[in-house]
């Protein structure tokens, strides 16, 4: 499903909006990492574990870049950059202190909370200083809503995954909820990919 926005990006290639390129990169990286993980899982478990470990920092790095580019206000940009770098530093520290390839609920929970916070910053900016008449006519709105819905949907399953790894009922539930969140995100990204940005600007503040 994550390939859908990638395909739609190619279909709308004429319009090279930077945020679309970043999401194209994001979706491609997620797809390739998942594919590589599945590919190496049986025969090369160590490589698969390394890929698994790299997944979160790569994904979150692109998210930081996306929000840093999309947000308009200097303070917000700096807050995203600073919190993102701090998170990545903390993540690298935990790599050495915990077994390779093991799911860390706290780290993933924090990354989702940060994504939620960044999305709220974007929504705040749009409320405080609206830049367009119809917010949903902007691709960025759909991209950020995709991140927001995914983070909101996956937050609780990520939070309990580490402690409930032996609970088969939970794992099924995890699969359903996580898949639902991922599909929702892909659909919202796809809407963003086919949305043409509105030309008319909102009136300036006076």
């Amino acid at each position: 499903m994550i390939l859908l926005p990638v395909l739609l990006f190619f279909l709308n290639k004429k319009e090279l909006k930077k945020s679309k390129q970043v999401i194209f990169l994001y979706a491609s990286v997620i797809f390739l990492l998942r594919f590589a993980y599945t590919f190496f899982f049986t025969n090369f478990p160590l490589t698969a574990q390394i890929i698994y470990t790299l997944y979160t920092p790569l994904e979150f790095g692109i998210i930081i870049y996306f929000f840093h580019y999309t947000l308009n206000y200097y303070f917000h940009k700096k807050a995203v950059l600073l919190s993102g770098i701090l998170f990545l530093v903390y993540y690298i520290k935990t790599i050495f202190s915990s077994p390779l390839g093991e799911f860390n609920s706290m780290i993933n929970g924090i990354s989702l909370l940060l994504t939620l916070a960044y999305s709220l910053l974007y929504y705040y900016e749009q409320l405080r200083y609206p830049s367009t008449l119809f917010i949903y006519a902007q691709p960025d709105f759909w991209f950020i809503t995709g991140f927001f819905m995914y983070a909101a949907g996956a937050f609780f399953v990520f939070l309990f995954r580490e402690s409930s790894v032996s609970n088969s009922e939970f794992l099924t539930q995890y699969l359903y909820i996580h898949s639902f969140s991922s599909i929702l995100r892909s659909i919202l990204f796809s809407i963003a990919m086919i949305t043409k940005p509105e030309k008319a600007r909102a009136p300036e503040f006076f």
Binding site: Y123, Q126, L127, I135, Y136, T145, F148, M149, A152, G153, F155, F156, V157, L159, F160, S163, S164, N167, E169, F170, Q173, Y174, I177
Partner: peptide, 25 residues
Amino acid sequence: NVTYVVYFGTFGMLFLAVGLIVFIV
């Protein structure tokens, strides 16, 4: 019984998220 918490938590989060987005629009 984690599954209830996860179901209610996820539903609550999604409900809040949708509500917030509708409000913002």
